[in-house]
Design a protein around this nucleic acid. Structure first.
Lengths: 248, 248
DNA sequence: TACTGGTATGAATCGGATA
DNA sequence: GTATCCGATTCATACCAGT
């Protein structure tokens, strides 16, 4: 297995990638959600919007949380259009969103050419309560296909996930559980390449390598690119160690 | 507790109900999500056009392809507009949909004046696997408020539900588990009235009566109206029996 | 190892003060 | 009045330390 981590803006980097070089796109873009007014959403930092007041942890902010609804849609559409170009036929794209952005995400996915094929809930058991109503305990994974699914594969994947957000050894505010990502990357053909234009701390890449897929990532923040680089490198080393371990 | 079951078309009946006479709307409209065949969706070639117009283009206006969705949206909007009129301030509306109709449902809810406040997954564990991809194991409950939530209530409701569709004693194709409906009707204030414009076999009403709420239902099909009537009447009888039971 | 009790926090939300 | 900022809130869950 191998990985490539590009440092820079997702859309800019994607434009440089060759046609049909990728077999799955799995990513978690900045949601640009939260807040009551447009200015709340666009002027506040991710930390200010999403982290509980008084939290002791010191996780770094992440960039890209300053788009309003309209520009979010056209930006995500442009990104998914490039992703469509670099993907081979039968590739699947999976995009995380929250309840507020799910309709926009499915719009963008379809406008970019993907055939929208479903929306998968990720249930987070440890979520905040809401007085007087229903709490918000799910995120959503909107997925689509370039062309149609490869029906010849003997593959049956779940329709929902239940897992808590990592708390131990957490390095990113919105880090995804590797156990979920390991199931998602199964949608990529074996020995294929998974693309994640918003690598963050690199959980998608870690899962891809563990499941025997190659990985191409893009990350703008050098802070998080450094972290992802470390985690990905450790994955390869560990893999080598395991392979050369007991048997050797 | 009491119930009223109207026989007739939902929109027609709703127009006859008085202003501000209802405290919650909980319903499962016919989705109409069939119609678009797989080949319809995959034969699109106009991708470039959609993308270059970007965010200025309304996805819903794609000619032909979305005609079903467009009429579903305007029909549901009209219905939810009437529901808004008959609801008191702080009322909550909850509308079931599948993944395909969820964006349209949130559009309609907001167009009718409700403040969209969340989307709740209902996980159905016993759903059919799908070869080559992720199965479809969730429905969605889109909910909104007239004005804002009543924050004075000491009420904390879940953000997702897990339950299989009823198998035994099932009388309707899309019948909902009463255990889920009993949690949903909690959002109605005690002694308030729950409205379900698409009563079907009456599970919403059964749950409302069991939880001490009044119920107003509408059902077009006389077959299902008969079934609902029977179930609702049985509920009241049973209630009386319980009340007059051991203590008496 | 299994259980118990203490503590921190969640891709939030909202009212109200301040600029 | 509008935009922005500040901080209180609320419970289930995860984690840790100790028995």
């Amino acid at each position: 297995m191998s990985y490539t981590l590009h440092r820079g803006d997702a859309l800019t980097v994607l434009k440089t990638l060759p046609d049909e070089s990728i077999h799955a796109v799995i990513t978690d873009p900045p949601y640009n959600s939260g807040g009551r007014t447009s200015s709340d959403r666009t002027s506040r930092t991710a930390r200010a919007k999403y982290v509980t007041t008084g939290s002791a942890h010191d996780l770094q902010n992440f960039p890209g949380e300053n788009r309003d609804q309209r520009s979010y849609r056209s930006w995500l559409t442009a990104l998914l259009t490039e992703a469509y170009r670099v993907a081979v036929e039968h590739s699947v794209a999976m995009v995380f969103s929250d309840w507020r952005q799910e309709p926009t995400t499915s719009d963008a996915l379809q406008m970019a050419g993907w055939t929208w094929s479903g929306t998968i809930p990720w249930i987070k058991p440890a979520s905040r309560p809401r007085k007087g109503g229903f709490k918000q305990s799910a995120e959503f994974i909107t997925w689509g296909v370039k062309g149609g699914l490869d029906k010849t594969r003997n593959l049956y994947l779940p329709g929902h996930f239940t897992a808590s957000q990592p708390r131990k050894d957490r390095v990113h505010i919105t880090q995804k559980p590797v156990e979920i990502m390991r199931e998602l990357v199964q949608i990529c053909r074996e020995d294929g390449t998974v693309l994640d234009p918003f690598t963050g701390s690199g959980s998608t890449g870690v899962a891809a390598l563990r499941e025997g897929r190659h990985f191409v990532g893009v990350e703008l923040s050098s802070h998080y690119a450094d972290i992802a680089e470390r985690r990905l490198r450790a994955e390869l080393t560990q893999d080598d160690f395991v392979l050369a371990g007991p048997e050797a």
